[in-house]
Simulated scan of single mutants.
Amino acid sequence: MHDTDVPLIEARALSAGYGSQPVVRDLDLEVRPGEVVALLGPNGAGKTTTLRALSGGLLPMHGEARWLGEPSRAPLHRRARQGLAYVGERAVFTRLDTADNLRVGRVTTEQALELFPELAKRLRTGAGMLSGGEQQMLSLARALCRAPRVLLADELSLGLAPLVVDRLLRAVREAADRGMGALLVEQHVRKVLDIADRVYVLHRGRVTMTGTPAELRGDLDAIESSYLAEKTIHATDGFLRPIEVNAPTRKAGLRDALARAGVQRVVSLGGPGGTPPGLSDDGFHPLQRLMRWVNDE
């Protein structure tokens, strides 16, 4: 049994961002011992900013980031000594071999191979020569084998094969069952729901939905289409320059994505091969009406 009375890591009315511009606003979120929490949302929703603010890599603008039950502004390296592990996309030392990467992380090869025996034949291979899946196994082994109190993982499975994703997520679940708390930013929505205890959906810097996987599964298609899904959109701007952006399949998300790409006016809009993007209608089909809306006409 785990003492779950006090969250290990928590955001209370947290706002954080860069310069004077907040990216996440009024965020309330917590992770308790023994649970896996999934943080979902489209690109640009503020997921990585949330992890940075919770880890001490980014100071809050407003509100609190709490660590081990207390408000904290301690930097990441200090929290790491107190049991926080942060895993980003393939965070390995590419010029060191696999064994030396483990040694730098104060992890023995025996510990790592117990977790990921797939690395046994790669111990003397340079980390830069490992596959993406092997690099993430190495990153996760360095984190989990030190028995952290909390794991924050940002896109652990980005670009990896489904079987590798299953291995990584299973290792996180098993560590949580031993008492660790985990907050996962994850693109494989349905897979992470299989191991998560609770879910937060982040959209445009705010939590728009929260619940257990069981509570959210019935609305999963709507959640994916409204908040998570993206399509590649081909546009031509007012200077007749071709633009390609990944945009959520909602008209508001499309306008935001085009604005971030520096597009002020669109004169054509389509998907791959020139086909219409197939965005959720929101009453804005046919395509010309959608274009007028994007251009705020």
Rank of each mutant, 00 (worst) to 15 (best):
R12I: 13
R12W: 10
A13T: 07
A13G: 15
L14D: 06
L14P: 06
A16H: 12
A16M: 12
G17C: 12
G17M: 11
G19L: 10
G19Q: 08
S20T: 14
S20V: 08
Q21V: 14
P22Y: 08
P22K: 03
P22G: 04
P22M: 04
P22E: 05
V23H: 09
V23F: 12
V23S: 06
V24H: 11
V24Y: 12
V24S: 07
R25M: 07
D26E: 15
D26L: 01
L27A: 02
L27R: 03
L27G: 04
D28P: 07
L29F: 12
L29S: 06
P33H: 02
G34V: 01
E35W: 06
E35P: 06
L39A: 08
L40C: 11
L40E: 09
L40G: 07
N43R: 13
N43W: 14
N43Q: 13
N43F: 13
G44M: 10
A45I: 05
G46E: 09
K47H: 12
K47N: 11
K47A: 11
T48C: 13
T48A: 13
T49A: 12
T50P: 09
T50M: 15
T50H: 13
T50D: 12
R52Y: 14
A53V: 10
A53L: 12
L54G: 08
L54D: 09
L54R: 08
L54K: 09
L54V: 06
L54Q: 10
G57Y: 09
G57K: 11
L58Q: 12
L59G: 11
G63F: 14
G63A: 10
E64L: 07
E64R: 11
E64C: 02
E64G: 02
A65H: 08
A65K: 07
A65I: 03
A65T: 03
R66M: 06
R66T: 00
W67I: 00
W67E: 02
L68Q: 15
G69H: 04
G69R: 02
E70C: 01
S72R: 01
S72I: 00
R73C: 04
A74G: 01
P75D: 06
P75W: 06
L76Y: 11
L76M: 14
L76V: 15
H77K: 02
R78G: 00
R78P: 00
R78C: 03
R79K: 09
A80R: 10
Q82A: 15
Q82D: 15
G83H: 04
L84R: 03
L84K: 03
A85T: 00
A85Q: 02
Y86D: 01
Y86A: 03
Y86P: 04
V87E: 10
V87K: 08
G88Y: 11
G88E: 10
G88T: 09
E89C: 06
E89R: 14
R90S: 14
R90Y: 14
R90M: 10
A91W: 10
V92Y: 12
V92M: 13
V92A: 12
R95M: 14
R95T: 15
L96G: 09
D97R: 08
T98N: 11
T98S: 14
D100Y: 10
R103V: 02
V104A: 14
V107M: 01
V107F: 00
V107R: 00
T108Y: 07
T108H: 05
T108R: 07
T109A: 13
E110I: 00
E110C: 00
Q111H: 02
A112C: 05
A112I: 00
L115F: 01
F116H: 07
E118C: 05
E118L: 14
E118F: 07
E118V: 05
